[in-house]
Amino acid sequence: MTFIKKKLLSFFSPILSVRSWVIATPYVWLGLFFVVPFFVVLRVSLSEEVLGIPPYTDMFLWVDTYVAKIIFTFESYTYLIEDDLYLSSYLTSLKFALITTIVALLLGFPMAIGISNLNKKWQIIMLLLIMLPFWTSFLIRIYAWLNLLTPYGLINSFLIYIGVITEPLRLLFNNFSVTIGMVYCYLPFMILPIYVTLEKMDPSLQEAASDLGAKPFTVFKSIILPLSFPGLLTGSLLVFIPCVGEFVIPEILGGSDNILIGRLVWNEFFLNHSWPTAAALSIALLVILFIPIYGLQKLQKIFAERLES
């Protein structure tokens, strides 16, 4: 009897302990609302499109009460390959993300250096100023550019006023406006990680370098740049990844020819009601995103190790 009791107790003790509840609660949540949905997407991407609710076929065809035939099709995926709209929109998305990352890097790196060169009090104020727009609504920030870039907006009016142009430039609903919107929204994500690595850097390293006769540019090239590389990588990752899947910015600031992958998923789902295609697009997007994430993480690890040793 006691043996059975002990067995029972040892079986139930993990269920009763606080520790297992602390682990299980978030674990189950993420499993149910993050992992399982992914498999649902996978399953829907392999089903056939039909008219009805929901607009896809059941995976199991019940032959008997206990026997079911599993039905799946790669139709949605072959469709993605056949129509070059999809491939070109993937490439467009990657192109926009890459350009945005580079522009944000060129703008954000000097800004981060500028902040880290200030005294402590001004550093806090500057960081607050950088973060403040981030805390205001994302939509509003994108919307703000609508105001600025319209044919009769401030930029065009100013350029006409000083006589550079006579006709308003077409600034809106094209590559330019999408890129500017993306850089604008994701710039803080580039500045903050770079600032953090710069802040950790021992300032006497720069002083030592210049004491040994290095000119400011040499100090930048041989001290600041290599040591801030982890921050540059993190910042680039934080800008690049959300840009690839971005939907709102190209939707508002982009024209009809700026078809990014996020928009395509949205359109397939909400306009065409083609759930399997939207699901297949998402799976493909994940696969594409996995490559840069994995590569950059590997790079980061290498750099972290090199800096440590």
């Binding site: 060169n117 509003i140 600025l148 210049s210 100090v219």
Partner: peptide
């Protein structure tokens, strides 16, 4: 010497204008 380097500060100023100009326009 390095801290007085103006270039990063100028970019910082431009960047801040870039961040705040649209918001000011909205207001």
């Amino acid at each position: 010497m390095l801290k007085s380097n103006l270039f990063p500060k100028i970019i910082l100023g431009i960047g801040l204008c870039f961040l705040y100009l649209p918001i000011l326009i909205i207001i």
